[in-house]
């Protein structure tokens, strides 16, 4: 393996630690440790997004997964009695799961390496030799201006995807109503 650029060094560093932490999630005996390992994996994934010049995605990843989701997991662990249920969480299906997991990994690796993926976004500044493609993503607006990733997402969200964006607000509304209805105590109920 030849190292061509700083980005590559950073990438492999991130990748190795992220995978190690992911293994930690699965193999840790204590659920709190699993949750902490999960946070590490999620934040390092944000690092990979930065390398891909998807800075908005990486920010969202840190905010939503590094912040929101991990706190949610912690709360769930704290409020429920899941910590009392120690011991291995896998059952008799373990061998089948291993075979299925390996099969999926094989197929995915084959697929990812064999496919000539579309370059949907015109990328510039791509080091030609680097196997890890580091690209500066710059999109053009319809008026021909160059935009950064964050600008482009904002632009698309309020032009092309304005209707799906509004529908997303309906989804949130339904989720909110449902969550409040299901979680709230009945008027005559002692909670």
């Amino acid at each position: 393996m030849q190292i061509h650029s700083t980005e590559q060094v950073v990438f492999y560093l991130l990748a190795v630690v992220a995978v190690a932490a992911a293994l930690g999630v699965v193999f840790a005996q204590d659920i709190i440790h699993s949750a902490l390992f999960l946070v590490v994996t999620l934040i390092l994934t944000a690092g990979v997004y930065v390398l891909l010049s998807a800075e908005f995605l990486s920010l969202v990843q840190v905010l939503v997964y590094g912040g929101g989701v991990s706190i949610l997991v912690m709360f769930a662990v704290m409020i429920t009695r899941v910590r009392d249920a120690r011991g291995p969480l896998d059952g008799a299906q373990k061998p089948i799961a291993i075979v299925a997991g390996l099969a999926i990994v094989t197929v995915l690796v084959l697929m990812i390496s064999r496919t000539e993926w579309q370059q949907a976004i015109p990328a510039v500044n791509r080091p030609d030799e680097s196997p890890v493609r580091v690209q500066r993503v710059i999109t053009q607006t319809d008026k021909g201006q160059l935009m950064s990733d964050t600008d482009a997402i904002g632009h698309d969200l309020f032009t092309t995807f304005a209707v799906p964006f509004e529908v997303a607000s309906l989804v949130l509304l339904v989720a909110l109503v449902g969550a409040i209805y299901l979680a709230r105590g009945e008027e005559d109920e002692v909670t």
Binding site: F161, V163, P164, V167, A168, L170, V171, V174, A175, V177, G178, Y181, L182
Partner: peptide
Amino acid sequence: ITSWIALELLSFCFYTLVS
């Protein structure tokens, strides 16, 4: 993306309604 978010809207409604 439009079709997917619509599918999610339907699914979220059903998650609530089923319970």
